[in-house]
Structures are given as C-alpha cells and as structure tokens.
Design a binder for these strands. Structure first.
Lengths: 167, 167
DNA sequence: GTCAGTTAGTTATAAACTCCAACCATTTTT
DNA sequence: AAAAATGGTTGGAGTTTATAACTAACTGAC
C-alpha cells in the first residue's frame, strides 16, 4: 500500500441513523444514460439466460444475424454495422469459425478482403437463436404492450440512427 | 499457439464480389438488446465528452446524485440502488473520497455501516454535473421531441422497474 | 516498373469492468 | 457464549474494450 492511500479514512463522527434500505433514484431516474443502462442490464440478463444453452454471446448473435442477412459481408463492413472495432471482429469471426458456424472466403478481386458466410450449421443455429432472442425480448419486457414495444424500438433507433429511425 | 488454433483457416474459394459497405441491421434492428446497446453507446459517448473536463465516470456521477438525494446512504444501499455489487461500491466511494467529493461516516448504532455524505466540494460539483448531464442527454437525443424523450424514459423505467415505471 | 499512400485484416498489449471467493469486524440469534 | 447473518473490504480471475503497431494487398502518380 502506498502512503498516499487513505486506508479507510473514516471520520469518527456521531451518526444515529442512516438510510439503509434500497432507494429510488429520484433525479437519477430522469437521466437517460442511467435508464438505458438499467433497461439494457435486464434485457441482456434475459438474453444471456436464453443463449446459455448454446453458449452464444450478444456480439456473436448480432454477427450471425448480419452474416445471414448479407452473405459475403466483409469484416470491415461488419465492424461498421455493429459499431465495434476491427480487432474485435477478428476475435468474433475466429470464434464463429472455430465452432463451425461461419467461414471466411478470400475475395478474388481484392485478396485483402474476406467474405464471411454461414455454414449449414450456422444457418440452422441462427434460425433457432432468432426465435430464442424474440422470446427473451418478450420476457424481459413483459411490462410493455406490443404497441409500447414498437414505440420503444422506434425511439431507440431515432437516437442512434436519426436518419432512418422513423421508418 | 496451440495446434488446435486454425491459423487463418481461409478457404481459397473463388469469390468475385462481396458486400463491402456498411449495412443496415435488418432483422437485427428489431432486437431490443441491440437497439438498447446502440442507443446507450451514443448517449454514453456524449456523456463521456461532457464529463471529460471533470474526469467523472458514469458510475461516479450516479453515486454522487444518489448521495446528494439521500445523505447518509449506506454502501450496501447504494449497491442495491445502482444495481452494482459491494466490491465496486468500495472502489467507487474510495475514488470519491480521494477526490474530496464525499466522505464515509461511521454509524453509531451499527458500527459496521458507513453513511456516505457529500463534502461542500461534492455538493458544488454535483450541481454542475447535473446540468452538464442534462445538456448531454439533450444533445444525444436531438432527434427526439420533448414528448418522445419523456415517453422513452417511461418505457425504459417500465422495463427495469415494472412496479414504478408508470408513475 | 516503382514509389508513396491507403485499406483489410491481424497481433499484442494494456486498461477497465465484472464477478467470485474469501476475509474481518460487528451485530443478531439461539 | 456459540452460531449465524450482515456491512464492508481485499484480492484475483476472467471478460471486454481500446490502442498501437504490424503485415499483406491494392491504388495511383510518376
């Protein structure tokens, strides 16, 4: 321990009672970042549970869905689409390849690029995963009506992709 | 490297063209988890920028706001309120103490507990931070009307706190 | 051609966050 | 008093996430 560390620098002040239970966030709940984080925490928890059996992480699932929608997508394109950086894509695609769910194919025209495709196995799995994911989303948002759910998605899209959020 | 690692196991298949640009997520954008993550990413980016000058992390900000709203809150209560675990609260409060923004006070009744209070400095700072945070939220959600913003908050609260979300 | 500059992908590394298990001090229960 | 429970703390392992540096391949200007 460094001397600069204040090893439990507790003032020995007198205090009769203090707030001991859980507490609602008050002004905090008006903060968008906080609300987003809390909601995401819950949704992701459900997602993890739903995917546990298949040992799939959120980013892996997202990748599989994009690859399915755009067979031959490049890694850089995947990075832009998912808003993650290139090094992460490498790991992501590696993990998918190792599990036999996807494969890289070198592009003839530009031999730097790899097109990514799903294997038969990958195709089969992603279909199942999409179903599980939908169920998980529903379970995590039981408190919402179908209309509210759609509304929420639209509002979120408006935030991160203002141009296309309204569609 | 292990022999089991497939060092760039690229099939030398022939491929003329492939999807190279960024791509819209298609079915992916219907996934709640994805939309939440993307929106949070953007909101947090704005938040980080707004707080850079004061070198404040999201969790630190949240803590300050809760402590301000509930002076004398205990660490366990803070943990429950922010949905983080006790060890993280220790680090969090340490960092706030080291910077002179908050202080622990041992409770007379139960000497295991620490009430946490803001210092004068902390009080002054949190007021400024709340203002910055509000501005940052607005900037990150320029695409939303005030009504939509309120709607979004309500929907998010409904997800993570179904009982109180409607209020 | 060849040189500089750019892009796709990769590697390595470090920083940060999260989670877990163990631990001390204190309080409560029996 | 002994046992169990609680508030807080410490340390470490396992993941993420970001950064920098690097190779390979392509492009365009000369």
């Amino acid at each position: 321990m460094h001397p600069s560390d204040n090893e439990t620098s507790i003032r020995q002040a007198s205090l009769e009672d203090l707030v001991t239970g859980p507490v609602d966030g008050l002004i905090l709940e008006e903060r968008l970042g906080y609300a987003l984080r809390r909601a995401q925490l819950k949704v992701f928890k459900h997602f993890d549970e739903a995917m546990r059996e298949h040992n799939i992480r959120p980013a892996q699932f997202s990748s599989l869905v994009v690859i399915e929608g755009y067979p031959g997508v490049t890694q850089s394109s995947l990075a832009q689409t998912l808003a993650i950086d290139p090094p992460r894509v490498v790991n992501l695609v590696n993990s998918l390849e190792e599990r036999g769910l996807a494969m890289r194919v070198r592009c003839k025209r530009d031999r730097r690029s790899h097109g990514i495709f799903l294997t038969k196995q990958g195709e089969a799995l992603v279909d199942k995963l999409k179903e599980l994911s939908s169920q998980s989303d529903l379970a995590a948002t039981q408190a919402l009506s179908e209309i509210e759910r759609r509304q929420l998605l639209m509002l979120l899209r408006k935030i991160y992709a203002p141009a296309h959020g309204e569609g």
